[in-house]
Design a protein around this nucleic acid. Structure first.
Lengths: 352, 352
DNA sequence: CTGAAAGCGCTTACAG
DNA sequence: CTGAAAGCGCTTACAG
């Protein structure tokens, strides 16, 4: 019962235009020479018949599918939704198609997905999910299918990757909280088995250390909202409550702010300063107004696509691990320096 | 400088296994007969060489790419992020690949994207973006490439589509707000030029009408957060403020709740009841705790994929416009019936 | 069950 | 510049 689509082929266009089939092909292949009159009659015939060159047949010949695979874990965290849309648009703009897969759980799942992508002859892969098995990494490399890890920590420093400067970002967060006068700073961290979660924490600790301080506590929340919420509850039931929290990403920070507000009646920055990581769109929503460390998605995406194409073209000799500078974005969820200065001022006046 | 990937082909596997190339092909084609011993030596050779059948070559033969195109407008609204992930997983589970495109703005953009998809020989398309031009609709139909509109209003009722029951959903929202005793109910609607926005509003008005009431006001917010926020400001600067608002989707409702809280110091349900539409994950977050009309994504996705495959296989004679029943999900952003009863009770006691 | 042959719809040297 | 021919890596009747 299956009905094959009845597509128009180059041969039919050739007949109608009174030319050979290769001439039709040339008209639709950039950088080939066809006389103006033949080109025109081919284009007219193609238009009349609704002809579109069959991408699959073309790819079979050229050995290039002009398709890039993107592997994601999930879209709950809006950072990945923004990344996907930006990546997709960028790749489309460069004439590439995008094939998406979600592979959350296991190495096996990612491996399976990547095999699918290989069978589909993708020209390259962006991995924004968990990392690959060594086996599959080597198979990809043997096949000459390049890939770039996007925002993923990786153990093997030889793998191509694009991240923000996670250590620096963590440092900026810690430094700023110290600057505005906080004394009891907690960290609800990203997953400590992932490099980005670990580096953010290390930068944060270094900043405090440089100020002669230490974190009140660091709790591994695995980049998971529920765990950040639970950790917040625990933190604020204790006697030595924090006066500031650096949260491993914005998505978790939203849960922290919510829990403080709804369950404890506390708000930022009056009761506690909160700082996140990512600067997703929602961070700027008034209800959160979240100070955060921006990962510049546009620049990360551009770098990812550039790197991927360099690897696809071959002959690239630039660095294959790129770090895009993260930056502190100050909003209302942290005590401001001005407020500190004012408080200092008040204190002095009181003392007089 | 371009380096073609050096992929293993069936011929190489055939040589190593000492069989013909078609036998290799048969081993990798479900539903074909190959003797156990040949099958085994082929599989071993394939494994040793890391062979994967070339999907593109297969598709060229069969006329089926086992690829579905998904066209989205954006992922800002988490409803579409959830829909994409669910659709993708469902299609993958059925052995199909997913090619995504974002096409926000214009008919022309969607048309261009769909042409790309046609050239890529997709077997079907899910359109969750704005609708198609008539021209392209007809070309798709002429080519025999089926498509399904997902959550999209469409003028032409002959086009295959899957939506929730938008009219009913609007009705449930209005009915509930009336039931819990609201008198001045406003509607910040979805786009009135889209069928789903319009139907939600119509259902809502009907519910009020059935109770002998009329909306305080209806403002077209185009499904856009910023417009909902502006409308909220206007609404609460007026003398006759609403005591309840039905918002055209959750995404806008979050902006409404935020604006009320941050700019007016008002909260739901004490000052005003808020009800949304979609039931995205965030609606259950404590900070919003949003009463809403659920569009059952899982069922909508299953229906979409079923319908699409029915159209692909041909011979389907079921209905091509499917409506999945929406349902009221009561959370804390609306005054409860209990509270109404209690208030009634108090009033009676006072009167005694 | 298995192999030789044709063909899917293109691209790309090769002649002219 | 243009056409006839070969080939990309498969699938699928067709014989045996």
């Amino acid at each position: 019962m299956s009905v094959k689509p009845n597509r128009v082929t180059a041969i039919e266009v050739a007949k109608r235009a009174g030319v050979s089939q290769p001439t039709v092909s040339r008209v639709f292949t950039p950088g080939t020479n066809v006389s103006a009159d033949l080109r025109e009659s081919v284009l007219r015939a193609a238009d009349e018949l609704g002809y579109l060159p069959n991408t699959l047949a073309r790819s079979l010949n050229t050995g290039r599918s002009r398709t890039i695979g993107i592997v994601l874990a999930y879209l709950n965290n809006p950072f990945y939704a923004e990344a996907l849309q930006t990546l997709s648009n960028e790749l489309n703009a460069r004439g590439y198609h995008v094939m998406v897969f979600f592979a959350a759980n296991s190495l096996e799942e990612v491996d399976g997905v990547v095999e699918d992508l290989m069978a589909h002859q993708v020209d390259g892969i962006v991995l924004a999910s968990v990392s690959l098995s060594n086996d599959l990494t080597m198979r990809l490399q043997a096949l000459g299918i390049p890939f770039v890890l996007f925002n993923r920590g990786q153990q093997d420093t030889r793998l191509p990757s694009v991240t923000a400067t996670n250590f620096n970002g963590g440092y900026y967060a810690g430094q700023y909280l110290v600057q505005v006068g906080h004394q009891r700073i907690a960290h609800l961290s990203g997953w400590q088995k992932a490099l980005n979660g670990r580096q953010r924490q290390q930068g944060f600790i270094k900043a405090l250390d440089d100020a002669g301080m230490a974190p009140l506590t660091c709790i591994d929340c695995h980049f998971r909202r529920e765990m950040a919420i639970d950790a917040t509850r625990e933190l604020f039931r204790r006697a030595d409550k924090p006066d500031a929290i650096f949260v491993g990403n914005d998505f978790m920070a939203f849960g922290v702010i919510e829990t403080l507000q709804v369950e404890f009646g506390l708000s930022a920055p009056d009761d506690v300063s909160i700082i996140g990581f990512d600067d997703v769109e929602m961070a700027a929503w008034e209800i959160y107004d979240l100070t955060t460390i921006r990962q510049p998605i546009n620049r990360m995406v551009t770098a990812t696509v550039d790197l991927l194409f360099e690897l696809i073209e071959g002959g690239g000799d630039g660095p294959i691990r790129l770090e895009i500078e993260s930056e502190l974005v100050i909003r209302g969820s942290t005590r401001s320096q001005a407020s500190i200065a004012a408080a200092e001022h008040d204190r002095k006046i009181t003392r007089l």
